[in-house]
Amino acid sequence: MKIVVCVKQVPDTWSEKRLDPADQTLDRAAADGVIDELDTYAVEEALKLKESLGDATVVVLAMGPAGAAESLRKALSMGADEAVHIVDDALHGSDALATSLVLAKAIEQIGYDLVLLGSESTDARMGVMAAMLAERLGVPQATLASGVAVDGTSLRVTRMTSAAQEEVAATLPAVVSVLEKINEPRYPSFKGIMAAKSKPTSTLSLADLGIDASSVGLAAAATKVLDSTARPPRGERTIIKDDGDAGARIADFLASRKLL
């Protein structure tokens, strides 16, 4: 059984994020890059499946600039077996459609029974990658999983949606995105970090994947960010004292900010 886990390098959740004024893409130099926390749940789930199944290989896959290698290293130090890094200057500014094209090609090339990924990325927050990958790979998708079980080639997933908890079944191969509540990701140990150094890692370029550079990158993106403004510093705060109607007033406040 081969499990491919897609991981993304994102700006550290704890650091200030900025867009590069030149092309309105993420300014990766402005913040420390880290493995997307939401993807660490997918890595953990893959490692747990490997532990319960015994015979499984966990391959972590990332598309991104050179720095993304650090995220792959972290996944390896958590216990993944192999890492594949898609790195190509032409990928800069790729949107979700292009990213899914590239990841799908790489996943096909690596070979897979199960693809796992986080429910969304903490930077772009599109939440569409699992669906796009499943579509491109022509396999079933189960998104927003809070539980994953594999028995032979049958897959059972518990899905949490806002309306209901669903139990869905599919036959492998399949693509599954996982929620934070699915597990508690292990943190890497120093021993794991040292062991990661001897694990196989490879890099792939667009040419290796047979993808034309013109179909990816900023120029090929389906949407274009025209302008951006930094969020202003926190101003006046609204304090609601509970005179019996605080709940309704909080709801009104959130609605006025279009948060409800």
Binding site: D32, E70, P188, K197
Partner: peptide, 27 residues
């Protein structure tokens, strides 16, 4: 250019392994 949390670029003086150890301890 400088970043506020590493004004002197001291991170560049660390190896990949050292950064990985630091990241694990920080986490």
């Amino acid at each position: 250019r400088v970043t506020p949390d590493d004004l002197l670029g001291i991170d560049d003086l660390l190896s990949d392994d050292e950064r990985a150890v630091r990241a694990a301890a920080r986490e």
